[in-house]
Design a protein around this nucleic acid. Sequence first.
DNA 1: GGGACATGAAGAA
DNA 2: TCTTCCTGTCCCG
Length: 352
Amino acid sequence: MPEGHTVHRLAAAFERAFGGQQVRTSSPQGRFSEAAQLDGRVLLGAEAVGKHLFLPFAPSADVDREAPVVRHVHIHLGLYGSWTFAGDPGFADAHAIGAPRLRMGEQEEELDDGGTAEWRRIVPRPTVRLRIAGACGLADLTGPTACEILDADGRQTVLDRLGPDPLRPDPDGRGRRRFVEAVRRSRTSIGALLMNQKIVAGIGNIYRAELLFRARLDPFVPGRDLSTGLLDQMWEDLVALMTYGARTGRIVTTQPGHREIEARIIERSRGTRQNGDEDPDVVPREESFYVYHRQTLPCRLCGTAVRSADLSARTVFWCPRCQSARSRRASWTREHPAAPWALVPDVDGEAA
DNA sequence: GGGACATGAAGAA
DNA sequence: TCTTCCTGTCCCG
């Protein structure tokens, strides 16, 4: 259940694990029979755009004799999809980013090969849609919303549906401006706009809730009511949050001073696992968020009970006091709002 | 063993 | 706005 930061980590992992290598491809489940067309081709690299992953395969000398065509495997993990990696010890080390565990979906975890490096003999689970195997390891894909082969035009069609991705380089600020302008043109609520991948690509339900909290912004305020200054700062905040997520594999939005040890007791049983939960050096999940999945618990800042409601087919979480329309109106409509996060500018650098 | 639920999105109505 | 699809986990009886 990844948001965009996980997909960017995945792309980096594929690049390191298989980039430039001839690979074997198969569909143990049988529902991606086109995998056979790619078997034995060279995997050229990996590309992440929003929550979409593209794996380009080199033309095949046999099949593409007339016109060489790069085939892009387009993968979207949706709500349930995940990748599981297994391989030689060196393979695992090579693409571990801040954590040695490698399941890249809801959790990162290695397939158990009994520690004998006999990963080639691991029988895929019956639900594995796509297996990619290289010289040093393999990756198994289960439960994706999309797993298909596209040509260059097909890939472009997917990209054309997407707004700017905060994790793509944006040196001239074009991505940020596209985001700001799209929001300001719309009467739709900011909480719904943030989930629309045409407005901004890569945000999911956690980043939505947490970004709105950090901006002290009511999820139900129409986009057109927001100032350019506020939206510029929200974009910058998103870049910082997602960059941290891509680096560590974890979403952490709370400032250190806002985390409470006693919250562990309350939330220990509430689910929402993240990569690295078992690592004592990272921020535990029950201290990672301000509002996500904290409905009925006291707001970390003001103690008011966090609320939840449906908003664009997903549950949104917010503090009705810190994010109250009435109390914040003055600051969002000003061109230079007193941005709350300016006081506590970024998540700290633990778990690098 | 059943049901609820989950970091998602497309297509029908 | 609704239904559907994809899988795994946890809680309950």
